[in-house]
């Protein structure tokens, strides 16, 4: 076995030799990348309402529960969802709005909770960065309102609040919204699932078995 640094040089040398006739000088790389044909659909053509309906339909198709509400009704809707879950202990990301933390339930505010503590909680409530209608996807960038990755993983029940203005029709539209690239991101499309045994889709293997989405209509809609 050669020393690690030597392998690095050897591999890069072999790669460079192998691509000698096709590799571009660094100055031309960006232009070549820009000329890659991208004739796929970037912006969807749906009306806002149709786009939201598509988002809800696709989420439901993958076994997520969806309810719609308004900004004014949001705290009450969250409270009703929590009550309906039959669960009592919930994790809240550090930045979760106080109004979302309904009374009558036990809240564990995540300021670096241990995995064991999070695992004891029955559910979690978070915001989202974006929703993608085409694939029924919830995007988390793990900001203060979306929480650390672990809190949306260990509890069995996840309630995610998505604002209608956050919903885009196509995946490329989400990438356009990113601005700065996220260091951490999780895309969730329906609850944890497997089809490893005879291709039978089973909901809930290791991640949350229940995904609830509250879609908040913007005023005037």
């Amino acid at each position: 076995m050669s020393a690690p640094s030597k392998s690095r040089e050897n591999i890069l040398e072999r790669v460079r030799a192998a691509t000698k006739t096709v590799a571009l000088p660094p100055a031309e790389l960006a232009a070549a990348f820009a000329s890659i044909p991208r004739d796929y659909i970037r912006r969807g053509g749906m009306t806002v309402t149709a786009c939201h309906e598509r988002f809800i339909e696709r989420l439901r198709e993958y076994d997520a529960e969806v309810v719609e509400t308004t900004e004014e009704e949001l705290p009450a809707t969250i409270a009703a969802q929590l009550a309906g879950s039959g669960k009592h202990t919930f994790v809240a990301p550090a930045g979760l709005p106080a109004a979302w933390q309904a009374e009558g339930f036990e809240w564990k505010l995540d300021g670096g909770l241990s995995a064991a503590e999070i695992e004891k909680a029955e559910g979690v409530v978070t915001a989202a960065f974006c929703g993608v209608a085409d694939s029924g996807t919830i995007v988390l960038h793990h900001s203060a309102t979306e929480g650390r990755r672990v809190i949306t993983l260990l509890p069995d029940w996840h309630l995610c609040v998505v604002y209608a203005s956050q919903v885009v029709e196509t995946l490329p539209e989400y990438f356009d919204r990113c601005g700065q690239t996220p260091g951490l991101a999780t895309y969730i499309s329906g609850p944890s699932a497997t089809a490893d045994i005879e291709m039978t889709r089973i909901k809930g293997v290791h991640g949350p078995r229940f995904l609830h989405v509250v879609l908040v209509r913007d005023s005037g809609q």
Partner: peptide, 21 residues
């Protein structure tokens, strides 16, 4: 791969994030 519009989970991470993972 699986005939799904999107797989249930996609994880993206970059090096080490203090306090997360």
């Amino acid at each position: 791969a699986t005939g799904e519009r999107m797989n249930p989970y996609t994880s993206i991470w970059t090096g080490v994030t203090p306090g997360d993972g």
